[in-house]
């Protein structure tokens, strides 16, 4: 399957040699040349990716089939389910019960009030259930993130573009309200995704 990603990218002329901005224009999507990243460097990039993916700013909304977001991390004390009995439903946006946007409203600028509902300039939601990350191991998330059946058919370039376009993801590095941001920064995380992808999506179980 990994070969399919690479073959498709080659066929579409997507293996890039210079910086190309995605439609979001928030980061540079500038992958290393094919074959230039070895497995060791790819795994090192993955370790940094896992630090981000498993961080509460990301993992709290990458929860499983109970459709319950989490409250965890240094500013939350003990890890627990989201208060107010919140259930995002199979819609993952709360359509069956209370919409996430009832509190996590659309907002153009940072909502920097401690304990208030985080808000971004797009609709708040849980990640798809296939992308369950909360409490999962590095090996599990690594295999999920390279599996097109569970990553919405994305190759590394599409993952980078996803990070560029979806503003809800940018919030992880600028959460406001006294919340601990995800480690590194958005551009570094995108760079690591590209390095990991060019290395052939290595996981420790390979």
């Amino acid at each position: 399957m990994k070969l399919t990603f690479v073959s498709l990218s080659l066929a579409l002329g997507l293996v890039l040699t210079g910086p190309v901005l995605g439609a979001g224009d928030n980061v540079e999507i500038n992958p290393p040349a094919e074959g230039s990243v070895n497995r060791e460097d790819g795994l090192a990039a993955w370790d940094r990716i896992y630090e981000v993916a498993s961080h509460p700013r990301c993992a709290n909304c990458h929860t499983g089939a109970d459709n319950r977001p989490m409250w965890s991390g240094p500013s939350y004390g003990r890890a627990r389910k989201h208060g107010m009995n919140v259930n995002a439903g199979e819609s993952r946006i709360g359509a069956e019960f209370v919409l996430c946007s009832t509190c996590h409203a659309y907002r153009e600028n940072l909502h920097d009030v401690p304990h208030a509902a985080p808000q971004v300039a797009m609709n708040w939601q849980l990640a798809p259930v296939e992308a369950e990350w909360f409490g999962k191991s590095s090996e599990y998330i690594c295999n999920q993130l390279r599996d097109p059946e569970r990553n919405d058919g994305r190759d590394y370039l599409a993952l980078a573009e996803h990070l560029d376009h979806d503003l809800i993801l940018h919030w992880a590095w600028n959460p406001g309200g006294g919340r601990e941001p995800a480690p590194y920064d958005l551009q570094s995380h995108v760079n690591d995704i590209l390095v990991w992808g060019v290395a052939g999506y290595p996981c420790v179980n390979d």
């Binding site: 946007s101 009832t102 509190c103 409203a105 208030a116």
Partner: peptide
Amino acid sequence: GVAVRSCQLAAGE
């Protein structure tokens, strides 16, 4: 038509 917490919704939105 949708319930919202009016303390959280910016007037501009």
